[in-house]
C-alpha cells in the first residue's frame, strides 16, 4: 500500500511537471525574466565580475535569448549550477535553458531527455606539460603521471587514447580543476589534461606561463552547446535560432555597431533583411516580435564579437578561433540559412 502511495505521488508530480513545461515561452514572458543555468565559474565562459555582473561566452547566449524573447538582455536570472546539479535543474523546470560548457553526447540528448540546440564552442581534450620535460607530442608520453579530474569524460578519453597508442600512464585523480592546477604546478604529475579551452584559460593564470606548453594533439570531440528540455520544440526553436542569428550575423557582417542602422531600412542583402525583420515574417513564425534577432545582436554582438570579447586572442585567455572559425575560414561554425 505504501508503494502505491509513493507511486501515485510520483505520477502526480510527473504530470504536473509535464503540464507546465509545455509552453516555456509563455512562462518566460509571464515571469518577465529568463532563468538561465550557467556554471559556478569558468574563466571566460561564465564568471561574475567584481560588481556581481555575469560575464562570459556562455552568458552571452543567455543574454541573447533574453533580448530576443523579452527585448531586454538584463532580464536574465542566472542560476549557477555545478556538474552535479545542472541536469536536474533543467529537468525539474528550475531553469529554461542550460548554457554551461556541456558536451553534446548521445546519452544526454536521448536518455536524459534533453535537446541540444546547437554548438557554440567546439572543444577537445588536450595535454599540458612543463617545457622542461622536452616533450613535443602526446605520443611521447609513455609512462607519464597524469593529473585528471575524476568522474569526467576526460578520464575515459585519456584511457582510450593511451590504450589505442599502446602506452601506459599513472593517473593522479583530483576533484576540481583549480586543485588539479595546483598539483600540476607543484610537480605532482608530469601532464595535466582537460578540455583545451580550460587548459588555455588556466595557463593564463600561471606565474610563468611560458614554462608550460599545450601539446598539439586533441584527443576527443567535445562539442559544447546550450540545451533545453524535451517536450517543447517551439522553445527549442527559439534558442536554436537565436544562436544561429549570432552566427549568421558574423557571416553576413552584421555587428553590434551597425545592426541598428541595418535594421532601420531594408538593405541590398535579402537574407540580412529577413533576419533583421525588415522583410518577411520570420519573427512571427517562432512567436516573437520582428526585431528579435536585431535585439539579440544589439545586446551581445555577433558570434565573432562575443568570442573576441570573452575568450579571444586579445583577452588573457587568448584562444584562437581554430575549429570555431566560420566555415568560410576553415572552421566548423555554420548556420542554416534564414529563409
Amino acid at each position: 500500500m505504501k508503494n502505491s502511495v509513493i507511486l501515485g505521488t510520483l505520477a502526480v508530480a510527473g504530470l504536473a511537471a509535464a503540464g507546465a513545461s509545455a509552453a516555456t515561452l509563455d512562462d518566460v514572458k509571464a515571469r518577465g525574466t529568463l532563468n538561465c543555468g550557467v556554471t559556478t565559474g569558468v574563466p571566460g565562459f561564465a564568471e561574475p565580475d567584481a560588481n556581481g555582473v555575469w560575464q562570459g561566452f556562455d552568458v552571452a547566449v543567455c543574454r541573447a535569448v533574453a533580448a530576443a524573447v523579452l527585448g531586454d538582455a538584463e532580464a536574465v536570472t542566472f542560476v549557477p549550477t555545478t556538474g552535479k546539479t545542472r541536469f536536474t535543474a533543467l529537468a525539474s523546470g528550475e531553469i529554461d535553458v542550460l548554457a554551461r560548457n556541456t558536451t553534446w553526447t548521445f546519452s544526454r540528448d536521448t536518455d536524459l531527455k534533453f535537446d541540444f540546440v546547437g554548438v557554440n564552442y567546439y572543444d577537445g581534450q588536450g595535454f599540458m606539460v612543463p617545457t622542461a620535460l622536452g616533450v613535443a607530442s602526446a605520443k611521447e608520453l609513455d609512462g607519464a603521471t597524469v593529473c585528471i579530474q575524476t568522474g569526467t569524460t576526460t578520464e575515459l578519453n585519456l584511457a582510450d587514447y593511451f590504450r589505442v597508442n599502446g602506452m601506459s600512464y599513472e593517473p593522479v585523480p583530483i576533484e576540481t580543476g583549480a586543485e588539479a592546477v595546483q598539483q600540476f604546478l607543484a610537480g605532482a604529475c608530469d601532464v595535466y589534461t582537460t578540455d583545451a579551452s580550460a587548459l588555455a584559460a588556466q595557463r593564463a593564470g600561471f606565474a610563468n606561463p611560458d614554462d608550460y606548453v599545450v601539446l598539439p594533439e586533441i584527443v576527443s570531440k567535445e562539442p559544447l552547446g546550450p540545451l533545453v528540455r524535451h517536450g517543447d520544440s517551439e522553445w527549442a526553436d527559439i534558442v536554436r535560432w537565436t544562436l544561429n542569428a549570432l552566427i549568421s550575423a558574423e557571416e553576413l557582417g552584421v555587428t553590434k555597431e551597425n545592426v541598428e542602422q541595418m535594421a532601420s531600412a531594408p538593405g541590398d542583402n535579402p537574407e540580412i533583411n529577413r533576419m533583421l525583420g525588415t522583410e518577411g515574417e520570420l519573427g512571427a513564425m517562432i512567436g516573437l516580435s520582428s526585431s528579435w534577432a536585431k535585439d539579440a545582436i544589439a545586446a551581445v554582438g555577433n558570434y565573432g564579437e562575443v568570442f573576441d570579447e570573452n575568450i579571444g586572442e586579445s583577452t588573457p585567455i587568448g584562444l584562437q578561433r581554430g575549429l570555431n572559425a566560420q566555415y568560410k575560414d576553415g572552421g566548423l561554425i555554420y548556420s542554416p540559412p534564414f529563409r
Partner: peptide, 26 residues
C-alpha cells in the same frame, strides 16, 4: 557550496578562483 550556493567557500571556489582576473590566487 556543493549545491551551488555561494557561501564563503562557494564564493572562493566558484566565481573568484575561476575569474579571468584572479585564476591562480589560492
Amino acid at each position: 557550496s556543493v549545491i551551488s550556493m555561494f557561501d564563503l567557500v562557494g564564493m572562493i571556489r566558484g566565481p573568484i578562483l575561476s575569474s579571468t582576473d584572479w585564476a591562480g590566487v589560492y
